[in-house]
Nucleic acid binder design. Structure first.
Lengths: 209, 209
DNA sequence: ACCTGAACACCGTTCAAGT
DNA sequence: ACCTGAACACCGTTCAAGT
């Protein structure tokens, strides 16, 4: 499992094959099936291991301030995904996998400590978790944009630079009037700041429940 | 493209191979590469086609009421994902693909019509889009749970039924105190209602910007 | 009991050869 | 110019054979 996470960190999901993992562990590829049921299981377990360690770390960072607890948890997960982009992909790939459940549970506990009414806790936790997952799913944009791009993708740097063609491939900037207009205020855009702003919007909404 | 969407609707992503698509079109597998660059491109284009048609449909449904515009768009996308689960997977799989950009742009336009201050529109649209994507990424749970499950997944029906083991595989219900406690109020839980509740929470937060 | 690694049944993708 | 479909380079997964 440790070895799998190393490979994933180094080369992403494509780099992790049963053959590569077997040779790294100096064993046969079939031997891995004695420890996991299949590849999906392997990725699920790897993501769960990362999430468990992140949530433990977030506990320490939050300290005694209940109002900062949710923020610490959720930003901790964001930072983990920045460091291990494959985790973001994996969280969004398999529904209700252990890593997501742990996150959900922890967010719910923090909301409880924050004094959110009991009947509203599930909905509230749900929005925060979905926000994290939504951001996570889009997060490896950087990694993808850094390499050569197939058609149909958004080139954010080109967009932000105000290049004539904001989009590569089949989508025309003229079809996206809002993004074209709003992009000017985003010259020094920071993914983490935007994630945080989203969390604050949601927390305001939750505080009115 | 039409043929690809049919195959995806019928059998999901696994059913769509270059060979199956080629035989359905009575051509050679290599011929498809004259129309798309690769498989990712094919899925991106298929999801974009669905999203474009959904957003056009949502325009009609919204009518003249500006305050219902965002809701109509976002619920329309949710319903489309219910009908075509592979779209949810695809939206969360490739970052900033055309389908996501169209959704983002449209949500932004609706927020503008709703009177959200200009400097707040990007953050606001971003939260709503991420919420949709987060929900989308978890949505094909039903499809997966219907079939035989490998370890490590959340069995929601078992959870909701209060079965002794809420989780299959390596995660223990005792590690999830919040979910274990809150699950009782979810006996007649409705995914669409919960999605809607999340949207309302976010809209309240946005209205305070 | 557990590991080995060749073999199987697939993929996506390419490309010489056809039309 | 466009299509064909066999061939290539991989996968995940299985399983008889070893230890």
């Amino acid at each position: 499992m440790h070895a799998a996470i190393e490979t994933l960190d180094a080369g992403g999901v494509d780099a992790l094959t049963f053959r590569s993992l077997a040779s790294q562990l100096s064993t046969g590829s079939g031997a891995i099936y004695h420890h996991v049921a299949n590849k999906e299981d392997l990725l699920t377990a790897a993501a769960d291991a990362v999430m468990t360690s992140v949530l433990d770390g977030a506990a320490a960072a939050a300290g005694a301030d209940a109002s900062q607890g949710v923020r610490a948890v959720v930003l901790g997960v964001f930072d983990a995904i920045s460091a291990h982009p494959w985790v973001g992909t994996q969280l969004a790939a398999a529904p209700w996998q252990p890593a997501v459940l742990r996150l959900f549970d922890r967010v719910g506990a923090e909301l409880d400590a924050l004094g959110v009414p009991e009947r509203a806790q599930f909905d509230a936790a749900s929005v925060l978790v979905h926000h994290v997952l939504g951001v996570a799913s889009q997060y490896d944009a950087g990694a993808h944009l850094a390499s050569a791009q197939p058609g149909g993708r958004f080139d954010r740097s080109a967009f932000l630079d105000g290049a004539t063609s904001a989009l590569t491939g089949e989508v025309d900037a003229a079809d996206l009037p809002f993004l074209t207009r709003v992009v000017r205020q985003l010259q020094n855009h920071d993914d983490r700041e935007q994630f945080r702003a989203g969390v604050e919007i949601i927390l305001v909404g939750i505080s009115h429940l």
